[in-house]
């Protein structure tokens, strides 16, 4: 018998022996790259800040806001009723419990849309449905809802309607408008007009 056969037999035996000690890698279920690419290119995942504000005001029960920023930033300020799932805990069972629930629409947000987009891609790869990204993130929220700017006079009417909505939303979320109105009212000077006393006729009768 050829000496090579002994060597090959030994190699094959030890390789097979090795398979006893390796464990099968658990690969989480994932959508195909083609599908992911297609969905990443779609703008349909973006939700405007106006839409989020509208649903918040309407108290839409199917809306779940998820703040993907770190907990320290979440504790400083966030949107009303938002839950905090930092992007690094997105893959934990506790973090995943918020996603893919039937009937719920999850809107992800961060300071800008980048972190939220990253979180969205992770969730998309794991095939969670009904996830959206707030366009522009909290920066856009500040710009449009908290400090809305009046459109120029030449803007179309819809822009003014949007501005009206944003002003109303601004009042809803900050309550600052009412205080302002009170302030300006107190600034008004009440002018007392002193009635001149009738001149007493001098000289007696």
């Amino acid at each position: 018998m050829n000496r090579n056969y002994y060597i090959l037999t030994a190699i094959m035996f030890f390789l097979a022996l090795g398979t006893l000690f390796i464990h099968e890698r658990k690969v989480p279920p994932e959508i195909s790259p083609g599908e992911l690419l297609w969905d990443v290119l779609q703008p349909t995942r973006f939700v405007s800040t106006d839409e989020v504000a509208k649903r918040l005001i309407e108290k839409d029960p199917s809306l779940l806001l998820v703040d993907v920023r770190p907990a320290s930033e979440y504790n400083k300020f966030t949107l009303p009723n938002a839950v905090n799932v930092p992007i690094d805990s997105l893959l934990t069972p506790a973090g995943q419990s918020y996603f893919g629930n039937p009937g719920m629409k999850v809107v992800l947000f961060s300071n800008d849309a980048i972190l939220a987009n990253q979180a969205w891609v992770l969730l998309k790869r794991m095939d969670f449905k009904n996830n959206y990204v707030m366009k522009g993130g909290l920066n856009e929220w500040m710009k449009t809802i908290i400090q809305p700017k009046m459109p120029p006079q030449t803007a179309p009417e819809t822009a003014f309607e949007r501005y009206d909505f944003r002003k109303a939303a601004h009042l809803y979320f900050t309550g600052a408008g009412i205080a302002k109105a009170g302030k300006s009212a107190s600034k008004m000077k009440v002018v007392f007009k002193k009635r001149k006393k009738a001149v007493v006729a001098a000289g007696g009768c």
Partner: peptide
């Protein structure tokens, strides 16, 4: 799966 692979290899060899 490792046991199957090892078993089959031993049988084959």
């Amino acid at each position: 799966a490792g046991w199957w692979a090892f078993g089959f290899t031993v049988i084959a060899l």
